[in-house]
Amino acid sequence: MDALREFFHMGGYAFYVWSAYGVALVVLVANVVVPMMRARDLRARLARQARLERSP
């Protein structure tokens, strides 16, 4: 338990170290999620168009 607290304490630099890692996590995850959502929307749009063309 103490080892864990010490780990998160980062020798007094907790704010700087974990802020840096937090920002990195947010930016890296956002860069994956945004293109995934875009790909899903695009595929749905293309499928809708295909259905419209089939049933005039």
Partner: peptide, 24 residues
């Protein structure tokens, strides 16, 4: 990932993308 979406978007009127869209 980004390039694949971009390719689909730019090629959306080509035969292979239409085929792909019909399949899903």
């Amino acid at each position: 990932m980004r390039a694949r979406s971009e390719v689909l978007e730019r090629e959306r009127s080509s035969a292979w993308v239409r085929e792909l869209a019909r399949g899903t």
